[in-house]
Design a protein around this nucleic acid. Sequence first.
DNA 1: TTCTCCCGCCACTTG
DNA 2: CAAGTGGCGGGAGAA
Length: 908
Amino acid sequence: MEVNCLTLKDLINPRQPRVDFAIEDGENAHKENVFVDRSRMAPKTPIKNEPIDLSKQKIFTPERNPITPVKLVDRQQTEPWTPTANLKMLISAASPDIRDWEKRKGLFRPIENKDEPFADSLQLHVVGNSAVDKFEKRRPSRKQKSLGLLCQKFLARYPSYPLSTEKTTISLDEVAVSLGVERRRIYDIVNVLESLHLVSRVAKNQYGWHGRHSLPKTLRNLQRLGEEQKYEEQMAYLQQKELDLMDFKFGERKKDGYPDPQDQQLLDFSEPDYPSSSANRKDKSLRIMSQKFVMLFLVSKTKIVTLDVAAKILIEESQDTPDHSKFKTKVRRLYDIANVLTSLALIKKVHVTEERGRKPAFKWIGPVDFSSSDEELVDVSASVLPEMKRERYSQIQVCAKRKLARHSSFHTVQASERIHRRVSSEPSSPSREEQGSGSFSLEIGSLTAVYRQKIEDSSQRKAFDSKKVMPPSSSLDPPVPFPVHSVDPEYCVNPLAHQIFSVPQTDLQAFSTHNGLTGPVGVSPASAASDMEGLKPALLAGQPLLYVPSTSLFMLYGSLQGAPSPASGLERGSSSSDVSAAAELASTPTAQKPLGEDRQPQEDGELTTKRQSTDDEAGPLSLVMPKKPPDSTDLASPKTLDNREPVPLEDMHLNGQLPAAKEVWGKATANSFFSSEWGSLSRDTEIEKPSNENEGTKEPSLLQCLYLQSPAGLNGLGVLLPGSQTPCAAGPPSGPPPPLGVPCMVLPPSTLGPFPVLYSPPVARPVSSAPGTLPHPGPVNFGLPGLGATPHLLIGPAAMVNPKSSTVLCADPQLQAPHSLDQSPVMSRSHNIQPESPVHEGHPGSVVKLQQSPAPVTPESIRHTHRETFFKTPGSLGNHVLRRRESKQLQNTSSAQRRLEIPSSGAD
DNA sequence: TTCTCCCGCCACTTG
DNA sequence: CAAGTGGCGGGAGAA
């Protein structure tokens, strides 16, 4: 006990150097090492250990914790506890996840290494100081206990796209125990997930896991509801109004402009209405809030929602008195929701800088375009929001209409004025949408303007500087230098979505700025930042690199507009310049995509979808990142994989993407965004694959693709194909080293010009037995040799790739095929082979597709991340994975899939 | 200081 | 009535 106390003190006063420690340090080092190892062992110990709350961990001392046998042992060994040792122990005992996470960060190693070899006095100090600090870092921090991280862990437990056959039930108790948190926290997660229909309550303490199959529908529905509710207008109104927190703080409602009580009532479609009949409101409160919150994003053209605005809207709807406390409470809830949504890769944190200052906000990074036929919408509406009965729905609609009627005029005028004032200068001519809708479109006028500016402004840099929306400087969003492979690290992180991310110009610029990327691609400073960060790196590793010439592409892109793409092109068609147009599309889902995107042409769906949401992104370049392919590892290593379920999304994406890509290219339309997810998802949903095989096939979708839209006419596109790729497509596993990482890249020379890119594949990947490993982020290096106009890029993944990996890749194609099932096998193939596809050759659009190699060798952790979930935390994942394995259902399935996959590769 | 948001009390629901 | 749910907001870690 005493020792422990000392330790704590030490922690508190790290500075105090102790001679004792000095000596001990050496020991500690060893101990630590040992400890670490044990910790690893620990996971195997009954999960029960985990149950301990992280929060409690702080308090608990080894002695107190009889639970973990490990500790006892450790303790004995390490009698001379040093703060470090203590911390380590605590941490390890606390949660394997954390442990892993930290390990990944490399905290331990450095320390350990240092300690062991040198037991210098210096070290002593070091230990006393830095070491302690480090330990503290290790100590479960608030971040580590964050709902977002917890949610990731939670999500990691279940397949994003479970087979129809597999019915996964979630036991709240079990989950709480396994995740080491109290059930209350699980409710928070589950409620949000439920709002999106990812889960549904089955019985007491039991939820059913549905996965993301219906997510597109749900979002579509929400979007529609949001539109009906005129959330966009409300947002614009609030913004314009600039209701400050002040208003709420003081509990004063502004008279001016503010809707009178009556109006509010009209506005309040929510509370009373939503909670379906009998259900108590409370029950659904968080769910409803979540849905509304999502709606705000979906209707927002900028796809950015500031918390204050969201909170205000919620307060209004709830008819709560707008006092400060209410506001705070709402904001808290919004954070809770946001954390979950972030874990789902649907939103990311950003900050909006306005006149008033910087405001916390979130940006929608999930699928943007779910437009579909009306009928679907209708159907969906019913299914998606169970709580919301149709009646309600109709009521809501009515309310919304009324609301609009009342507010619109008022709203419009003021908002418009204000916005104009801010933005007026904006160069871009208002898209018809904007004009049509009036100022609303400007909801975040400044932002919009900024983005627009960016787009239009040839000098992107300026735009960049001026841009008001910035990625959170903090952890999540470091303005990443061009994201290497994943466009935006943040985005990348989310790979979940596999969504296609457009590359913001800013990013591009930044990228350009950086002459070359070196080092692990994935690792960006950003990664370091947040909890997510830790994960990011892993993700990155798997992902391919993308290089996008910023400006040039941009410019080109703009020019391209002209050529509308036929089919799916509809949405895209507006392409280029019309960011706004795109926005429109986004906003008005229904009409636009009448085509039956769903099934058949997944392509369509995909194509349709992702236009980039907003202006900002409007950039011509769109990157499509399918989620990371399920890791090669998955494929490769059966073990690791098993836990997770497959990652259908990816597959889907791939399939979809390819086709889409083709179309795009063919059409020469510049921007095409697809969300393969959606398209794929829907398919999945529809088509459920009963057999593991199918899943297995899905997994293959490892590939990540980047699309750079290039102007339609680019003939000059430089395409780089890893030689291996083709082969891969062919599928011979063993063949020449398959190109894992990036099968091919097509870059318009012009664009590239500015950026010579070197892509050095990660050097040898760890040869780990693990199969296809993508080059981790680390390995990839970009250099800027001055490439000429000629094809700038090169990717040489193939060389890098291990044969194994290659296999994986090959396997992927096959796997993918299944997805493509819906479509044609050809599609699947094509995507693999893309280079081969005609599109590549002739098409103007420059597309860069990178397939990622799946991945990481080792790891489960990685794989997990990449896979469906993408949840960032790689580290944590690892543990989870293990746990997962334990978990029955999932494991089995996944394992099966894995197996299948492997074979497939073998077949190749 | 502000932003975040964990934590857990306690009221409401449900079985 | 006990257990399950989850609203709510204090208060503290992070930035």
